[in-house]
Amino acid sequence: MHAESLPAGKTAALKAFEGMAAEPGVAKPDPILVVDNVVRRFGGLTAVNVNHVEIQRGSITALIGPNGAGKTTFFNQLTGFDTADEGQWTFNGRNMNGVSAYKVARQGMVRTFQLTKALSKLTVIENMRLGAQAQRGENFFRGLFPALWRGQEDEITLQAEELLERFKLDAKRDDFAGSLSGGQRKLLEMARALMGKPELVMLDEPMAGVNPALTQSLLGHVKNLRELGMTVLFVEHDMDMVRDISDWVIVMAQGQVIAEGPPDSVMSDHRVVDAYLGAHHDAPLSAEEEERQLHEAEAELEKEVKE
């Protein structure tokens, strides 16, 4: 990549966002995902309450916000891993609320997880093969006759090997995924998600727990997704990374979208600063910390219920 001339995808994305009002819920010219009034409550706590948000096709959009803002919960709603109490959203114009997680993935909306879910007891290449869609051999009866699926399996393997090479994991092809480093697992998870040829890739904290040496390479891969025509929506705490790769930033706090805008301007937005300063404006918190806070909230809730 040349430093001075921007890649085509970046240019297109920037053009789409040019002159757009930096207001929460602003309409995008070509949205791939449109969300309306999504609400999720845990007991008395409203974890997510998003009025309206659109994600521009072909862009890299960052979803940021202080801890407990409901980003991951929001992700879970959109991808069918949790059911929203209210609201609806469309992906490519198709209604997706109440659609189960695996169907969401088949539609081309694939996610990764904050705590990496590399299947550590399968080899790297088996992990990759698993990501491919519409495999003939995944039917029990057809699976019994290798002749029926061997050809497709070879194609899948080729595709997987190409991706592994791109993600520099080809040397680990036959290792158990459990033997990979944290960063390599993130890479594997991303590469595996791409096996399904998704349109929208949703990354939940792709940089968490990644060795700094690998960060640049991961960033490059994320940018590359856009060049390949995919849309990326990611949750991240690392502001440098957000500034570096995102075309558009959506800020959540206390379950709501409080601000939107290009990365440079949104970070100076006073609502954003307030939201962060009000909470933890310095170091990003770890996953355990977030978990702990959630439990604290839960414990408090329980107390209330008991009283």
């Binding site: 997680a101 695996y102 029990f140 290798p146 399996e153």
Partner: peptide, 24 residues
Amino acid sequence: KSPWGRVLKAIREDEDAVRSLGKN
């Protein structure tokens, strides 16, 4: 040995991961 068995083994380990890859 088939892709079917691969999905089962993956489910044993982490069913959410398998779900996110579009398997029922």
